[in-house]
Design a binder for these strands. Structure first.
Lengths: 270, 270
DNA sequence: CGGCGGATTGAAGGGAATCAATGCTTGTGG
DNA sequence: CCACAAGCATTGATTCCCTTCAATCCGCCG
């Protein structure tokens, strides 16, 4: 039943170099299309895409965080994905006239948006289609990873997955460099993400702090033992670390200093 | 916090008619490409796509069931998706050289397969690309629905989701017509799907039977109160009911009788 | 007939939810 | 500048759903 040993994937799942190159090209086309649109802003808890809206659009996040979620009749909420700066969201609304899910800013968010038909047009432009596919694949892996975590890990493990994943994604996108970062999620939001309750998230965070694994204080996270964490959550499906074209540093001038400070990059705080 | 009433989506999320038409055209191209390849067979517990394999391919299921899953170091398994006849699987392996996940037959499965590069070629052929996108979207909705169920529903609700979804998908594909069908999953597999234990799946099934909602006996399911069930699990993200071209009825001659029997269609049993 | 995989059921324990109260920040208005 | 309220974080006590462990049963196949 457990015959297969931990097949450690060598450097993670990644396709061949030529395809990687195509993906980068495609992503540039997409990025440029978004950058031509005006930059918009949304405050905390604003819906970037509402549930039930007729013609949803696709969004490129420039700064800030957002989540994809839905609320059930009993009032409980389930969060499926966390979007960080540079992410494309709403890809899965391309064919749905009335999405059940919504995308909400957890933060002050700066973004560009393209309506579904304009985005579908992109699809036939050179390598852009391939890139869209890759973005969707990436998003899909994140949900699968989450599903596995919620279904087969206890509270301790789930919180580790959430924090470690955020850490890794922010690092991969070069939005942070050290071992700490700001994560503007309330404990209730973490709970909705991980299929737990606010109270239990709190207790679990305390335990993690006592164990010296991770410190979370206010909305500031310090990853103390990345390697031990990574070991704890091994075996879950993992993403692809797609190549990504850099975004022009910051939407608003004056925010970019010589060495980018992550607080500025992430939360648009002073 | 719970201000939005149950926005019942009128007839489910579906895009505009012209796009629907394009999708159907695209799906036909894809279907034909698969049908040109030889038909293969796989027995129960055979891996259609193994984890860690270098160049995974895409598969069209002709008959039988399969699951997408991964096994964690502690020996526990998580199942992410259930594939039924007519499904495309392995779409999310297009860019991953070493997938962590595997696709396993839960049944005797007949299928066609195309390797990743051949499938990627399809991508640029007319509307096929759009169709692939739609297939991925559909699969994505299923996992999100599962995530919400595991995270925010109790055992009772989760089992309902699993059985009702299987029922709806089989019906949508016209593989069954009545209110009963054969579902070749063991209780352990259901447990891995729903983030529960085998024992508790069993108890929950008993409770459902006692309540007169669903009867599951051996691998045969009878949906007794579809409407009450649907109400129980409302609020979850729901799929799109894509238009699909019909597949030629049965891979092996002699299995198709005047009125198709679901046992034959689903399990290849005599 | 014996063995095996799957299903079923019981008893006991634990992890997480629930209920409830208190503290801490932050922002707002007097 | 302070008071107050609102939202979030923290902690305790209790309950219960689900897991774990274990035994038995059933149908099937060699």
């Amino acid at each position: 039943m457990n015959e297969q040993p931990n097949v450690v994937t060598p450097e993670g799942p990644i396709c061949d170099p030529t395809t990687l190159d195509d993906l980068l090209t495609g992503s540039r086309i997409i990025r440029d299309a978004f950058l031509k649109t005006t930059l918009r802003f949304a405050g905390r808890d604003t819906k970037l895409i509402s549930s039930g809206v007729t013609d949803p659009s696709v969004i490129l996040i420039r700064s800030g965080f957002a989540v994809r979620s839905c609320t059930m009749p009993n009032g409980r909420r389930a969060i499926f994905d966390l979007f960080i700066p540079g992410d494309l969201c709403g890809l899965f609304h391309l064919f749905t006239k009335y999405p059940m899910e919504e995308i909400t800013a957890v933060n002050r968010v700066a973004y560009h948006s393209l309506d579904a038909s304009a985005f579908r047009a992109l699809f036939t432009q050179g390598k852009a289609g391939l890139s869209i596919l890759a973005w969707m694949t990436d998003a899909h892996y994140r949900v699968e990873r989450l599903t596995a975590a919620i279904g087969r890990l206890d509270a301790h493990g789930r919180v580790c997955v959430l924090l470690l994943d955020a850490y890794d994604r922010l690092r991969h996108r070069k939005l942070i460099h050290g071992n700490s970062f700001s994560l503007p999620l309330t404990q209730e939001e973490m709970a909705d993400f991980l299929g737990m309750t606010l109270v239990h998230v709190n207790r679990t965070l305390r335990r993690l702090r006592e164990e010296g694994l991770i410190v979370v204080e206010r909305q500031f996270v310090i990853i103390q033992e990345p390697d031990r964490l990574r070991q704890l959550v091994s075996g879950l499906p993992c993403g692809m670390e797609l190549p990504e074209p850099a975004l022009p540093a910051e939407p608003r001038p004056g925010m970019i200093s010589a060495q980018p400070r992550y607080e500025a990059a992430l939360t648009n705080a002073d």
